[in-house]
Amino acid sequence: MRDFTAVVNPTAGGSTGAAAPPAAVRLLREAGARVDTEYSTGLAHARELAREAGRRGRVVLAVGGDGITGAVGGALSGTGALFGIVPAGRGNDFARALGLPRDPAALANGLLHAGPRAVDTIEVESAVHHRTVVLGSVYAGVDALANRHANRARLLTGPASYYAGGLRAVTTWRPAGYRVTVDGVPRTHRGYTVVAANSPYYGSGRMIAPGARVDDGELEIVMIRHAPRRLFFALMNDLASGTHVRRPEVCVLRGREVRIEADREVPYGADGEVEAVLPVTARVLPGALRVVG
């Protein structure tokens, strides 16, 4: 029987305060597993809790959305500790990329019995992130601005908050001039965003990088060029199915490392959190995280 430490974001999904544990956590306890619960006060605290639990040989669960999932999983990257996700946030995009079941009983069964799976992580370096590790994607441009608006939304949740944030961001966005260097090869790009993706999904189920895989040792780099706003809104709708990559305004590359720079101050985010501005470097860490579920 595995022992678990659940690192919980008490405000996941827009709630406030320490909520009741999700059904999957209750089912783990009912099955006889020992589950300790630790409530984080922020992402830095979540990383500390995760590292300590991992050192004690416990399976570390991220309970919340993509922010805490990226923080906890990133903290365990390269340590050999076992990691699991109990989705309880607005986006839950990395859980979606892993194909985790939505049914709590099936999720609990996987956490108890499934063998570990090696997945890739992303090392992020910048003036702010001297070195940190995330799981899903690093994105620089209008989507980072949209995500900032979504995180600050009070009346909307889930996909609605991301769509409203996107509308607000696009109305004020002006194209940025990017320099994107993939595995040492530079190129220029002018437009809306550059995304370095380990997962196909971001922004609550939007398929930004349909060819990305969490275990292939590469990043998929998606660049959306400047286009009229009406076309950009059409591109946003295409994200539901990933068909935007067929449009001539979208360029898709693959590589192990990408450096993103811009000719003005452009925000970037990672795993649902926006904390900094370009430049940033993202590189894949193949098979660095052991996931159960």
Rank of each mutant, 00 (worst) to 15 (best):
M1L: 13
M1V: 10
F4Y: 06
T5V: 05
V8M: 00
A12L: 09
A24M: 07
R26L: 14
R26W: 10
R34M: 12
R34W: 12
R34E: 15
T37V: 14
S40Y: 02
L43E: 03
A44V: 09
E48T: 02
E52M: 05
E52Q: 08
G54E: 04
R55W: 11
R56K: 14
L61P: 04
L61D: 00
A62W: 02
D66E: 13
G67K: 02
T69G: 04
G74C: 03
L82Y: 02
G84N: 01
R96Y: 10
D103E: 13
P104Q: 05
A105W: 06
A106F: 05
A108R: 00
R117V: 07
R117L: 11
A118G: 10
V119Q: 01
I122Q: 01
E123F: 00
H129C: 13
G136W: 06
A140D: 08
G141L: 09
V142M: 09
D143C: 14
D143M: 13
N147K: 11
R148A: 15
H149R: 15
L155H: 14
L155A: 15
G158Q: 14
G158S: 15
A169G: 06
W173G: 02
V182Q: 07
V185A: 13
G191D: 04
Y192A: 09
A196W: 00
A196G: 07
A197W: 03
N198M: 07
Y202N: 15
Y202T: 15
G203W: 07
S204M: 12
G205T: 08
G205E: 11
R213E: 14
R213C: 10
D215H: 01
E218H: 11
L219Q: 04
I224D: 03
R225C: 10
L231M: 12
F232V: 09
A234E: 11
L235I: 15
M236C: 15
S241Q: 12
G242I: 08
T243C: 11
P248T: 01
C251L: 14
G255M: 10
E257I: 07
V258I: 09
I260N: 01
D263H: 05
P267F: 05
A270M: 14
E273I: 08
L278I: 07
L278K: 03
A282Y: 03
R283A: 04
R283F: 02
G287S: 04
G287Q: 02
L289N: 00
